[in-house]
Simulated scan of single mutants.
Amino acid sequence: MYKYLTLLNEIENMVKSGKYKQGERIPSIRSLSESYNCNKSTVIRTLTELERKHVLYSLPKSGYYVVISKNELKQGKKLVFDFSSSAPDPAVFPYLDFQHCINQAIDIYKNDLFIYGTPRGLPSLIDVVQKQLTNYQVFAKKQNIFITSGIQQALSILAAIPFPNNKKTILIVKCTL
């Protein structure tokens, strides 16, 4: 078995058994590599996989922590839903899970997150739309698919392209979710 899988299983078992408690910081990469007599890259690979499995989460320049699971009801305690407020109960709202997801999104999409995109739309979204259209027997080339974030952008694109058969009338459909 690979060294990182052994390390992964051992850390995961320590979390499940309670040796590493929820919210607790686990040992550093350096100390884990020394304890398990392995390379730091092996430890990093293990921790990345445990983070992907949502067993651990990382805080930059702080370390890795055990994910805090949802509160379980204590025996005899009844669950009460209060619909008078639209806000969730702060005690059960998964702030750390949400923070973990936001951090992951920033890490993965950091180059595309705060830019407007290409004039034709996000390339990965165009790929998905093309596949979805193909499922409905609509065969469109990627260069013919435009995704806009507003009517002004759509009108600008439409004004710049020549229409077949010298037509002058266009139909615009606004989709809202």
Rank of each mutant, 00 (worst) to 15 (best):
R25D: 01
R30I: 15
P60M: 06
R52K: 15
L32K: 04
K70A: 14
R52M: 04
G63T: 11
E24V: 12
E24L: 07
S35T: 14
I44E: 10
R25I: 12
R52Q: 07
L32R: 03
N37V: 09
V66R: 02
G23L: 01
G76T: 09
T46A: 05
G23H: 01
S33R: 01
S41F: 10
S62T: 13
S33D: 05
Y64T: 04
G23C: 10
S41P: 02
T46I: 03
E51K: 09
L50K: 03
L59I: 15
E51S: 11
R45C: 10
L50H: 07
P27Q: 03
S69N: 15
S28I: 11
L47E: 02
T42D: 03
P27Y: 00
Y57P: 04
K61C: 12
I26T: 12
S58L: 06
R30H: 12
Y36K: 00
H54S: 09
T42V: 13
E72R: 08
G23D: 12
L32N: 03
Y64W: 03
Y65H: 11
E51T: 15
I44A: 06
T42I: 09
S41C: 07
T46K: 00
S31R: 13
L73Q: 01
K74G: 01
S35V: 04
S62R: 15
S41M: 15
R45K: 15
H54F: 06
V66H: 00
I44H: 04
S35L: 12
P27V: 06
I68Y: 02
G76Q: 09
G63C: 09
N71A: 13
S35H: 11
S69Q: 12
V67R: 11
E34L: 12
S58Y: 04
Q22R: 00
P60N: 13
H54A: 08
T46Y: 03
G23Y: 03
R30A: 13
P60W: 04
I44F: 03
N39F: 00
I68L: 08
Y57S: 05
V43D: 05
R45Q: 15
S31I: 13
P60S: 11
R25H: 09
K40H: 12
T46C: 14
S33I: 03
R25F: 10
V43M: 05
E24P: 04
E72T: 08
E34P: 04
E34T: 10
